[in-house]
Design a protein around this nucleic acid. Structure first.
Lengths: 226, 226
DNA sequence: CGTCCCACTTGAACACAGTGCAAGTCGCTG
DNA sequence: CAGCGACTTGCACTGTGTTCAAGTGGGACG
């Protein structure tokens, strides 16, 4: 058999593609092996375990995020830009949000990102623990915001894998949720408009929340005398 | 064999106990069967599938959250109280945050909670889509905030299940993270204090973020003329 | 009081996933 | 050219979700 047909980078890259296509539950070593054109078990020599592979893939995509230049950008613009980039990345790789709940994903890529995030809030005027907290607030908001779409994507893919008519099952599931929501006055009142709003501009809620949070952080800065 | 030994409520309750003890990956049908004192497959008759069981368990714990009386509480106090309750619940049942990424968890329990959340922000003065967005901002922040501790808990339990010395593996993992962080100036500067801060008051970051967000929402209210 | 029905339980069995292992198979080095 | 060792492979084991055919016993009905 040919030698040196696999490299760790190639495996991680292919795993990311597979994860993007099939979701976190769709990644298994045999499918990955098939995509790589090699035996499933060959992967183990390069990455050790599936857990480790996911950790590597998770950290890799963090490198895709651009870091704004703080010398030429005011902190709020930089914060918005970095947050929006992260949001886009998590939307592109929705499996990462799920993986975040089950694996400890921390490597050079995320460290680089975290460090720059901290720099932004230090530039804004936060010091010590407060800079941490400000950065964590924005970060966790983005993470949580990405979780619900990630679940939806995962659910859709699962229906697709189970064969059969995913269409009908999805419709049934939506109908059930609709029925439950209809029993609560405020949810019922917003049911149709909420779906329509989300369909036309899914990122509205994200931008609304992000700007509210940044407003709040600015208020904290002023309160602490800046 | 005795009849009527199992009920759906009992199964869901036991599943929640098991999930609390062992985490999401620790829940499997045979272990659940053992805890129930019955065959693993008997559960299927009552709940249909593992996915459905998790959906049921996930919705059940939502009922635990108290809903503040909006007639006697101003909106900001109510919002803080409900957010803190939710945060505590997600900390108690950290598997729920993980499950949120892989299953569509929406039932009467969550609907009840969402409806009351919406009521708070309508009471504050938000209308229509803005009330949705305000509620979603707070909710997703809490969710994201719970995700990292959930991952840590899951990781610890996984090490425990893999037998051997979880202690040593955990230590090694922390050391590696420490080493990576040390290569970035701002992370390095905050490494020790961050760990210490978290150890003494893990909820500080949560409360800081929550109040910042509520500040931001208040600012939005004023900006839109209230 | 007997008997039949069916709600409920059970154990065996299947499919598939992660992974350890022993046996290769080449390319490079001496 | 011989052998070492970096890589690859197929087999097989374990654990997990789930299906299914075969019970089993409590209550309803005659």
């Amino acid at each position: 058999m040919p030698r040196d047909t696999l490299t760790r980078e190639q495996i991680v890259k292919t795993a990311i593609d597979l994860l993007d296509d099939e979701g976190l539950e769709g990644l298994n070593m045999r499918a990955l092996g098939k995509r790589l054109g090699s035996a499933a078990t060959a992967v183990y020599w390069h990455v050790g375990s599936k857990d480790n592979l996911i950790t590597l893939a998770g950290d890799e995509v963090w490198q895709q995020i651009a870091l704004p230049d703080l010398a030429t950008t005011d902190w709020r613009t930089a914060a918005t830009q970095m947050a929006t980039d992260l949001h886009a990345m998590l939307t592109r790789h929705s499996w990462l949000v799920q993986a975040f709940g089950s694996y400890m994903i921390f490597g050079p890529g995320k460290a680089r990102h975290d460090d720059h995030g901290l720099a932004i809030y230090e530039a804004a005027g936060f010091t010590g623990a407060q800079a941490d907290q400000a950065a964590a607030t924005v970060f966790t908001f983005i993470l949580g915001n990405a979780l619900v779409p990630a679940a939806a994507a995962s659910f859709t893919k699962k229906l697709g894998r189970d064969g059969g008519n995913a269409e009908a099952l999805m419709h049934e599931s939506m109908a059930k949720a609709h029925e439950i929501a209809a029993q609560f006055p405020r949810l019922r009142a917003r049911l149709d408009t909420a779906v329509a709003d989300y369909a036309t501009a899914p990122d509205n809620t994200f931008q609304f929340g992000l700007q509210a949070i940044l407003d709040g952080l600015e208020a904290q800065l002023i309160a602490f005398g800046h």
